[in-house]
Write a protein that binds this DNA or RNA. Structure first.
Lengths: 122, 122
DNA sequence: CGCAAAAGTTCCGAAAATGTGAACTAATGA
DNA sequence: TCATTAGTTCACATTTTCGGAACTTTTGCG
């Protein structure tokens, strides 16, 4: 199996980061990895959003995150251990990831508030 | 001609913003609009990157920026006047746009530095 | 008015990217 | 050796994107 390429920090591009994080599933994965500060397997994210994500799709998502330089993946026996590379990226692009994850957080809070205050459909 | 839909600020999504800004042409446009603080026509950006951008493509790019809520477009006579909506978005997602544009700026500076220090091909 | 030009948009076909089931690979353990 | 589990790769359908050609709006000019 291929040795899992990870770009070095100086090869990480803003385009790739933004593209990777323009998908709700991928941000959810990164946010979780960044928050928990410890490694997680891919299959741990099969229900990262409301509905289940097929594993081939999940694999693609991890690939995108990996190649964007946002996560590091290491094979440990039968499973993959994924960790965030946010600290490295923070050095190169200070505040970038934090503000993106922060914006998503704010967005989901506002979404909650809206459905709470306007639940006429219930 | 259609009346040019602009999402209201509270309908702007982070996904759409990141997707819009994951393209070099579109960031270049937004950065320019945000920096200049005044309106510009679409055709003013035909050479926003090294090579010329076809006008149908440019039109699509402006549409993406518009629908993401990043710019406002108004027809003035024969041409469109585009302005950035960064101030509005700053209220909803503080620091987001600034950190993205900042990251791109840093990236292009580093790219310059690299080609300067390693120009063997010249 | 009629017509030409300029700025954008829309249309459409080609090319690229994405999602996902099915088949495959690699590591583990009985 | 064989079954199981975790992920990857393949193949194909769907979607998105690019860009040339044609179209629409507005303006300016005779």
């Amino acid at each position: 199996m291929k040795p899992l390429l990870h770009p070095s920090v100086e090869d990480v591009s803003v385009e790739a980061i933004l593209h990777a994080l323009s998908d709700p599933v991928r941000v959810a994965i990164l946010a979780e990895l960044a928050y928990s500060q410890c490694s997680s397997t891919c299959s741990a994210f099969q229900n990262v959003i409301d509905k289940p994500v097929p594993k081939s799709t999940l694999s693609q998502h991890f690939k995108v995150l990996r190649e964007a330089g946002l996560i590091r993946a290491e094979r440990k026996g039968i499973e993959m251990h994924n960790t965030s590379r946010c600290a490295e990226i923070e050095e190169r692009f200070p505040g970038l990831i934090a503000s993106i994850v922060g914006a998503y957080t704010r967005q989901s809070q506002q979404k909650l508030k809206r459905t709470k205050s306007t639940r006429r459909t219930a």
